[in-house]
Simulated scan of single mutants.
Amino acid sequence: MLTLNSSDQKSDNNNMTDSIYDFDVLNNRKEAINLAQYKNKVVLIVNTASACGFTPQYAGLEQLYKKYQHQGLVVVAFPCNQFGQQEKGNNEEIKQFCDLNFKISFPLMDKIDVNGDSTAPLYQYLKSEAKGILGTKNIKWNFTKFLINRNGQVVKRYGPTVKPEKLTKDIEHLL
């Protein structure tokens, strides 16, 4: 298995994996989670931050999750502090913020890097499978979203300005 949160394990995921199911990640309690537990689910992976202009998207992500979770949607949030230092808190503080302000019920993972030398292997894979505008790989800001089909493959990447409710049609198509 490939690990997500180990900064000392850097990999170039060129054809090393066919799906997100090959990755282990850490949840916000530092417990290992194998993404294979989401087999046959539609997954929306988002890098998040608590002090960002896009932070209100947590509410939209929760609405999507509540509306479609029983049909097989899972939203998975990965806090990241790489953009404007907008996620300074530790995992416990981030969870408390999300609980207090948005009452999220979807999985919240360990804080990670999505760009640079310490990019989490999962994000190396996601970025190689769905490039951004003009074919760039780097994540441009918080709340970039990746939609994953029931086979664990990246279907689409959405920029931070795309609000969660705008993903409804694409999610319904995959469900």
Rank of each mutant, 00 (worst) to 15 (best):
A49I: 04
A130R: 14
Y68N: 07
Q69C: 09
G116D: 08
K137C: 00
D170I: 00
C98K: 14
F146T: 00
T3Y: 14
L100C: 06
N28H: 12
G60D: 04
Q85F: 05
G152M: 03
T48C: 02
L73Y: 09
N28K: 11
K140P: 01
Q69E: 01
I133R: 06
N40F: 04
P56V: 09
K156S: 05
K140V: 03
K66Q: 15
N5D: 15
Y125C: 04
D22E: 14
L100H: 09
K103T: 03
V76W: 03
F23V: 04
N34I: 01
D99E: 10
E87H: 04
N91W: 02
L26W: 03
P121N: 14
K103P: 05
I94V: 15
S19D: 10
G72N: 02
Q69N: 11
R157L: 02
S6W: 11
G159F: 01
I94R: 10
F54M: 04
S19I: 02
N90Q: 15
P121A: 14
T48V: 08
N81E: 01
T55W: 12
K111S: 05
Q153E: 15
Q82I: 04
Q57L: 02
Q124N: 15
V43F: 07
N5C: 14
L26D: 08
T161H: 09
N27A: 03
C98T: 11
R29M: 10
T168F: 05
V46S: 00
D8S: 12
Q85Y: 13
T3D: 14
F143Q: 00
F106E: 00
V155S: 03
S6T: 08
K41A: 06
Y58W: 11
L61P: 15
